[in-house]
Computed example of a mutant assay.
Amino acid sequence: MSDYQYFLSEKTQIDELIGKGFVITHVTENLSGAIVDFVLPDKAEKQQLHITTADARKYFSRYLLA
């Protein structure tokens, strides 16, 4: 799979979680990407994504700044 396809896959996962009402609560950067913790506030449900592409890391950062 190309880098662009990896980015689209990660972007879709981020969009799905944000669309369901999840919010980003914690980000851990490491050499292999970023671990992003999402929480659904009213149900306290948690999800975690491992984001590996630089473009997807830039993409989720816009939600942090919003």
Score class of each variant (00 low, 15 high):
residue 35 I to P: 00
residue 11 K to H: 07
residue 12 T to F: 10
residue 32 S to D: 14
residue 19 G to D: 10
residue 32 S to Q: 12
residue 28 T to P: 00
residue 41 P to D: 04
residue 20 K to Y: 12
residue 61 S to Y: 04
residue 60 F to H: 03
residue 2 S to R: 09
residue 53 T to L: 12
residue 56 A to H: 04
residue 4 Y to P: 00
residue 14 I to T: 09
residue 32 S to A: 14
residue 40 L to V: 03
residue 51 I to C: 00
residue 29 E to H: 15
residue 39 V to Q: 14
residue 65 L to P: 00
residue 18 I to P: 05
residue 38 F to P: 01
residue 41 P to H: 11
residue 13 Q to W: 04
residue 25 T to I: 10
residue 23 V to C: 03
residue 7 F to A: 07
residue 37 D to F: 01
residue 52 T to I: 13
residue 5 Q to K: 14
residue 14 I to D: 02
residue 64 L to Q: 11
residue 15 D to V: 11
residue 61 S to H: 09
residue 49 L to G: 01
residue 33 G to C: 08
residue 21 G to P: 05
residue 43 K to A: 10
residue 17 L to W: 08
residue 31 L to S: 12
residue 22 F to K: 07
residue 3 D to I: 09
residue 17 L to R: 07
residue 28 T to E: 14
residue 42 D to M: 03
residue 20 K to G: 02
residue 15 D to P: 07
residue 39 V to W: 02
residue 47 Q to Y: 02
residue 19 G to V: 09
residue 56 A to C: 13
residue 12 T to P: 02
residue 21 G to L: 07
residue 10 E to H: 10
residue 65 L to I: 13
residue 31 L to I: 03
residue 6 Y to A: 12
residue 31 L to E: 15
residue 30 N to V: 02
residue 65 L to W: 07
residue 18 I to M: 15
residue 11 K to S: 10
residue 10 E to Y: 14
residue 30 N to R: 10
residue 57 R to S: 03
residue 62 R to I: 04
residue 4 Y to L: 15
residue 63 Y to A: 00
residue 57 R to L: 01
residue 35 I to V: 08
residue 31 L to M: 13
residue 40 L to T: 09
residue 21 G to H: 12
residue 52 T to A: 11
residue 42 D to Y: 07
residue 59 Y to V: 10
residue 36 V to A: 01
residue 64 L to M: 15
residue 15 D to Y: 11
residue 21 G to A: 11
residue 56 A to T: 11
residue 45 E to L: 12
residue 14 I to G: 06
residue 4 Y to Q: 15
residue 62 R to S: 05
residue 39 V to N: 06
residue 28 T to Q: 12
residue 44 A to V: 07
residue 22 F to G: 02
residue 22 F to H: 09
residue 51 I to T: 01
residue 20 K to F: 06
residue 23 V to R: 15
residue 63 Y to E: 01
residue 49 L to N: 02
residue 25 T to L: 02
residue 27 V to L: 05
residue 23 V to F: 02
residue 64 L to F: 05
residue 35 I to Y: 01
residue 22 F to R: 05
residue 33 G to Y: 04
residue 31 L to K: 14
residue 20 K to S: 11
residue 41 P to T: 11
residue 3 D to E: 15
residue 32 S to M: 05
residue 2 S to Q: 08
residue 47 Q to W: 02
residue 26 H to L: 12
residue 66 A to L: 08
residue 64 L to S: 03
residue 18 I to W: 06
residue 23 V to W: 02
residue 24 I to A: 01
residue 19 G to W: 13
residue 56 A to M: 12
residue 50 H to M: 07
residue 64 L to N: 09
residue 60 F to N: 01
residue 57 R to G: 01
residue 12 T to E: 15
residue 5 Q to D: 09
residue 25 T to Q: 12
residue 58 K to V: 05
residue 43 K to F: 10
residue 7 F to Q: 14
residue 42 D to R: 13
residue 14 I to K: 06
residue 8 L to S: 10
residue 15 D to G: 06
residue 8 L to D: 04
residue 48 Q to K: 13
residue 37 D to I: 00
residue 25 T to R: 13
residue 49 L to A: 05
residue 17 L to C: 03
residue 61 S to F: 01
residue 15 D to T: 11
residue 44 A to G: 06
residue 19 G to M: 08
residue 34 A to K: 05
residue 7 F to K: 12
residue 26 H to P: 00
